[in-house]
């Protein structure tokens, strides 16, 4: 493990622009190669042909969670180092195979943890504060997402470089990752559930007149359970998107038209208070 601190430091910072040249054909590859340059230059300092070979090796497709790319950087550099030092067990193909095998699972766990859980929690907390004009909303949101983000990047590189290959290729590692993903989805779902109750403002002012008495429709719904309408609306929209594959824009237009109709109906004298 002889990469200099400087090379590791540069590797860490070069992991940031992973998506700088994103395209559909090879996705994050340009950024990935950019991130390996300092490490490979040091490893193959006395072997220009080896450097070219290594660079070409890493021009293949690459896509993973940006927050976890440093793990793979670490693992790959550790393997390249061993190869350059003459290890016969590690071929160029093996390095490419490990890289390809890791990008999927790390993307899965990273997306679930960061997009699914931390972002959702952060937004749940942040939106509430923003709606009352509190600047701590976005700040807390950024902290909730980015403190773990930076920790994952920093310790990910360290862990990947020092221990990585063994952990991730073991059954133990795979099971651990599955359990972590499961836990993150639990938290994400709880937060979404409560946001349905607090952030979807669907109620109605329609009043049904029967003889002398007036029955506000909303009271009827509320007596069954609070927030019944938001819950029903969200699940109906979910059904449309998930089972009927309605497009987002169509749903948006439908909801806007629905809102207009709701306002129109509520203003008809027969239904007004």
């Amino acid at each position: 493990m002889s990469l200099s601190k400087e090379a590791l430091r540069k590797t860490f910072w070069r992991g940031m622009p992973l998506q700088g040249c994103f395209n559909y054909e090879r996705q994050q590859t340009v950024g990935w190669l950019y991130g390996l340059v300092p490490g490979l230059k040091e490893i193959y300092a006395n072997d220009p042909e080896g450097l070219k070979e290594a660079l070409v090796r890493h021009t293949g497709f690459y896509n993973t969670s940006p927050q976890f790319t440093s793990v793979i950087q670490g693992i790959v550099l550790a393997m390249e180092e061993q190869k350059a030092n003459g290890s016969e067990l590690i071929s160029g193909d093996a390095i490419v195979a490990i890289r390809t095998a890791l990008i999927g699972p790390l993307a899965g766990i990273g997306d679930s943890l960061f997009w699914g859980t931390l972002r959702t929690i952060g937004l749940g907390v942040g939106i509430e504060l923003c709606l009352v004009g509190n600047m701590f909303g976005p700040i807390l949101f950024l902290l909730i997402h980015n403190v773990p983000h930076v920790l994952c990047r920093y310790y990910g590189l360290k862990f990947g470089y020092e221990k990585g290959v063994d952990f991730f290729t073991s059954a133990e590692g795979a099971a651990q990752m599955q359990d972590i993903t499961d836990a993150t989805k639990i938290v994400g779902n709880v937060v979404v559930g409560s946001m349905i109750a607090t952030m979807v403002g669907f109620s109605t002012k329609i009043v049904i007149h029967s003889g002398e008495t007036a029955y506000p429709l909303q009271d009827m719904f509320d007596s069954i359970m609070p927030k019944l309408l938001p819950l029903a609306l969200v699940f109906f929209c979910y059904y449309l998107i998930n089972k009927k594959h309605v497009k987002t824009l169509t749903l948006l237009l439908a909801l806007i038209v629905f809102s207009i109709l709701l306002v129109a109906i509520e203003s008809i004298p027969v239904f007004a208070a």
């Binding site: 699914g116 779902n189 709880v190 559930g193 109750a197 979807v200 359970m225 998930n242 987002t248």
Partner: peptide, 29 residues
């Protein structure tokens, strides 16, 4: 926001995690 919610649900939700969604809903509502 109902639309935002259901798109997020599309990503996070399935029958296995349904109890947790309703737990969150119950706690808030």
């Amino acid at each position: 926001p109902a639309m935002g919610m259901c798109i997020l649900m599309n990503y996070l939700y399935d029958s296995h995690y349904a109890p947790y969604l309703f737990l969150g809903f119950t706690l808030s509502a």
